[in-house]
């Protein structure tokens, strides 16, 4: 097997690093731009990784925050992740991930476990419908004014009020679910 060392020439090393550095630079620049768009919420933002920024957003401000990114054409909504922090914490989070190049901006909406509710972003981003349906059926988050509130993945005969991705939904050893123990 040809085992030529990859990095034969120092100039190549430098060039490669420069390219990588360039990319990181671009990601940082993009994040700076997003931060500017997301004032005043961005005051609380954090950088968990060099190319990622987390911005906590109150549910009431979600539409405004999404609009700020959307109007400026900062990236696209790549996914909405639901996170259950557990019954003891009494809270959940809905994470809206926007991607542009290598940069990822996550709008984090903290929600109470009981009566968790976010506004729909479909008015701005119609294709968010699938993500919102999934968030709703898996976590029990109400997405107000979402154009299609029907289930996406769960069967019609899945019991109401049972949210499989919540921490207190426990699967029985033989599969299925305990339903009864949810809540």
């Amino acid at each position: 097997m040809s085992t030529e060392p990859l990095l034969q020439k120092p100039e190549l090393v430098l060039a490669l690093s420069q390219l990588d550095r360039c990319r990181l630079c671009m990601a940082e620049t993009l994040l700076e731009a997003a931060k500017a768009l997301l004032q005043p919420w961005a005051a609380e933002s954090t950088l968990p990784e060099p190319n990622r920024m987390d911005v906590p957003i109150p549910a009431a401000d979600l539409l405004a925050a999404v609009k700020a990114l959307h109007d400026a054409r900062w990236g696209y909504l790549s996914a909405i992740t639901g996170l259950d922090l557990g019954p003891e914490a009494g809270a959940m989070e809905a994470l809206y991930h926007f991607c542009m190049g290598a940069a990822v901006v996550t709008l984090r909406v903290r929600l109470p476990r009981d009566e968790a509710s976010v506004p729909s972003v479909c008015g701005l981003i119609p294709s968010a419908s699938f993500f919102e349906r999934e968030l709703s059926e898996m976590f029990g988050v109400t997405v107000t004014d979402t154009p299609d509130p029907s289930r996406l993945f769960l069967p019609d005969d899945w019991p109401d009020g049972v949210y499989p991705l919540r921490k207190d939904f426990v699967m029985s050893p033989t599969g299925g679910g305990n339903g009864a123990q949810a809540e």
Binding site: S150, R151, L152, F153, L154, P155, P164, M171
Partner: peptide, 8 residues
């Protein structure tokens, strides 16, 4: 309406 291949 998806879900045929939803396995959890």
């Amino acid at each position: 309406r998806l879900g045929y291949v939803h396995r959890g």
